[in-house]
C-alpha cells in the first residue's frame, strides 16, 4: 500500500512541477513578444513623447510629431531648443546614440515663457491667431486680442507676425495643469489622446 501511495505522490509532484515551469516559460515568452511589439509600434510615439510639444518649428519641421518621424528615419536628434537638455538626454538614451549638444543652427536653450499681448496697443488684425499652433489666442477682427496663459506653449510664433509689435514673451513658471485647466480632462479624453 505504502509504495503505491508514494508512487502516486511522486507523479503528482513531478506533474505539478512541469506545469509550473510551462506556465512560467509561457509568461516570459509573452512578456518578451509584448515588449518587442511595443518597441516596434511606438518608436515615433516614444520619440514624440520625449519632445516638449511646444510646436514652435525651430527644428525645421512643422510641429513636433513630424520631427519625431524624421528622427525615426535618421535625422539628428539635437535640434529642439525648447526641450532643453532633458529632451536631448532622453532622446540619446532612447535611440542609443552618443549625447550631442544642441545644434546652434536651431536656436538656444531658453527659460519657459509665455506670450503676453499689450492689450491697449493691439489693433485686432488677427495675425497672431493664425500663427498660434495651439489656438491659445482669443480675439476677433478689429477687437482686442489676448493670450490664454494656461494654453500658451511659449513657441514665440505669434511675436513676429504682429504688425504693431505688441506681443512680449514674459518669463513665467510653467502652470500646473490640474489647477489651471479645468477643461483639460474633459477635452483630453474625448479625442483619444492618452496620457
Amino acid at each position: 500500500m505504502l509504495p503505491l501511495i508514494s508512487h502516486w505522490l511522486t507523479q503528482l509532484i513531478i506533474g505539478a512541477g512541469l506545469l509550473l515551469i510551462c506556465v512560467y516559460a509561457l509568461q516570459k515568452i509573452y512578456q518578451y513578444v509584448h515588449q518587442q511589439l511595443g518597441i516596434q509600434k511606438s518608436l515615433v510615439t516614444r520619440i514624440n513623447r520625449a519632445l516638449p510639444q511646444t510646436q514652435c518649428g525651430q527644428c525645421g519641421h512643422p510641429g513636433c510629431l513630424p520631427y519625431a518621424r524624421a528622427i525615426s528615419l535618421g535625422e539628428a536628434s539635437n535640434k529642439c531648443p525648447p526641450g532643453g537638455l532633458e529632451t536631448i538626454l532622453e532622446l540619446a538614451e532612447l535611440l542609443n546614440e552618443p549625447v550631442r549638444g544642441l545644434d546652434p543652427a536651431h536656436g538656444q536653450f531658453r527659460d519657459f515663457s509665455v506670450a503676453v499681448i499689450r492689450e491697449d496697443e493691439c489693433i485686432g488684425c488677427t495675425k497672431c491667431i493664425q500663427a498660434c499652433p495651439v489656438d491659445a489666442i482669443l480675439g476677433g477682427p478689429k477687437l482686442m486680442h489676448t493670450v490664454i496663459e494656461s494654453e500658451c506653449t511659449g513657441c514665440d510664433l505669434c511675436v513676429e507676425p504682429c504688425p504693431v509689435d505688441c506681443i512680449d514673451m514674459a518669463n513665467h513658471i510653467a502652470p500646473s495643469l490640474s489647477q489651471t485647466t479645468p477643461l483639460y480632462f474633459a477635452t483630453h479624453n474625448s479625442l483619444g489622446v492618452s496620457t
Binding site: 510639444q53 510629431l65 495651439v134 479625442l191
Partner: peptide, 17 residues
C-alpha cells in the same frame, strides 16, 4: 510628470487646431 501632462495637452491642442 507635470511637464509630460502639459506636453500631452499641447499636442492635443495642436492636433485639434
Amino acid at each position: 510628470e507635470q511637464s509630460l501632462l502639459r506636453s500631452d495637452y499641447w499636442q492635443h491642442r495642436f492636433q485639434f487646431r
